[in-house]
Amino acid sequence: MEPDELASWLRLVHTPGVGSDTARRLLATFGLPASVFAQSQASLRQIVTPAQANALHLVPAELAAQLTATTDWLAQTDAAGSQRAILTLGDGRYPNSLLAMEDPPLLLFVLGRIDLWRDNTGQSIAIVGSRNPTPQGEANAKQFGQACAQAGLTVVSGLALGVDSAAHHGALEGAAAAPDQLATIAVVGTGLDRVYPKRNLALAHQIAQQGLLISEYPLGTPPLPANFPKRNRLIAGLTQGTLVVEAALRSGSLITARLASEQGKEVFAIPGSIHSAQAQGCHALIKQGAKLVENIQDVLDELRPLTAIKTVAIDAEDESAAAENSLEDPLLAALGYDPAGLDALVARTGIAPAQLQVQLLELELDNQVARLPGGLFQRMARG
Score class of each variant (00 low, 15 high):
Val36Tyr: 04
Glu2Gly: 10
Ala344Ser: 06
Ile270Asp: 02
Phe37Val: 02
Gly170Glu: 06
Ala38Cys: 05
Gly170Val: 05
Ile270Leu: 10
Ser251Tyr: 14
Ser20Ile: 13
Thr88Ile: 00
Val299Ser: 11
Ser326Ala: 15
Ala166Met: 10
His205Phe: 06
Pro305Asp: 06
Gly137Gln: 01
Tyr217Lys: 08
Ala53Cys: 14
Ser215Asp: 10
Ser253Pro: 04
Asp298Asn: 10
Ala202Tyr: 10
Arg382Val: 01
Gly281Ser: 11
Ser97Gln: 14
Leu153Ile: 11
Ala7Ile: 01
Gly375Ser: 10
Gly129Pro: 10
Gln181Ala: 08
Ser43Ile: 03
Arg45Met: 15
Leu285Val: 07
Ala313Tyr: 14
Tyr196Gln: 14
Phe228Arg: 06
Gln146His: 14
Pro223Gly: 12
Val299Thr: 10
Ser97Trp: 09
Pro133Asp: 01
Ser130Gln: 02
Lys198Trp: 08
Gly17Glu: 06
Thr77Lys: 15
Leu292Asn: 05
Leu234Gly: 01
Leu285Asn: 07
Arg11Lys: 00
Leu219Glu: 10
Lys310Arg: 11
Ala149Pro: 12
Thr15Glu: 01
Tyr217Ser: 11
Arg199Gln: 15
Pro105Arg: 06
Pro197Lys: 12
Leu192Pro: 09
Ile235Cys: 05
Leu98His: 07
Leu254Pro: 01
Ser97Leu: 08
Gly383Ser: 04
Asn227Tyr: 01
Gln52Ser: 08
Pro50Trp: 09
Gly237Ala: 05
Gly191Met: 07
Leu292Asp: 04
Ala202Glu: 15
Ala53Gly: 15
Arg25Asp: 05
Ser8Tyr: 00
Leu63Lys: 00
